Computed example of a mutant assay.
Amino acid sequence: MLIPINEFFRTLPQKCCAKCGEVVEEQADCYTTICENCHDFVTYPIGQK
């Protein structure tokens, strides 16, 4: 017997960072597996001098 699709998605485990294990917020347009803290990115604010 198949479970309803909404029940399937509700019971999925939370997505966790592959490096530190911190819970990663799901994003519809992103398939990243590493949290922002573990990335080696440098971000700069836009519009500030």
Rank of each mutant, 00 (worst) to 15 (best):
V23Q: 07
E36W: 08
R10Y: 06
F41C: 05
Y44E: 14
I34Y: 00
C38D: 00
F41S: 06
C30G: 07
F8E: 08
G47W: 01
V23G: 02
C30V: 14
M1L: 04
C30W: 13
Y31Q: 14
D29Q: 11
P13W: 01
V23C: 02
K19W: 03
R10P: 00
P13F: 02
V42N: 05
G21K: 02
F41Q: 04
A18I: 10
L12E: 10
P45I: 04
K15E: 03
G47S: 02
M1V: 03
E26T: 06
M1G: 06
F9K: 05
T11L: 08
K19H: 10
K15H: 12
C16W: 03
T43V: 15
F8W: 11
Y31L: 13
T32Q: 09
E26K: 08
D40L: 15
F9R: 05
T11P: 00
E36R: 09
I34C: 01
V24S: 01
P4K: 14
Q48K: 15
F8T: 03
P4C: 12
E36T: 14
C16N: 10
Y44R: 13
P45D: 07
P13M: 02
H39R: 14
E26P: 05
I3P: 02
K19A: 08
D29F: 14
K49Q: 14
P13L: 02
Y44V: 15
F41K: 05
T43W: 08
F8P: 00
Q27M: 14
N6G: 03
I5W: 07
E7L: 03
L12V: 09
E25V: 11
L12Q: 11
P4F: 09
G47C: 02
C38E: 00
Q27N: 15
T43N: 07
T43H: 09
V24H: 02
E22M: 07
F9I: 10
C16H: 10
V42A: 12
Y31A: 13
E25C: 06
T11Q: 09
E7G: 02
H39E: 15
Q14N: 08
I46Y: 11
N6R: 05
M1Y: 04
P45L: 10
L12A: 09
Q27Y: 14
R10V: 03
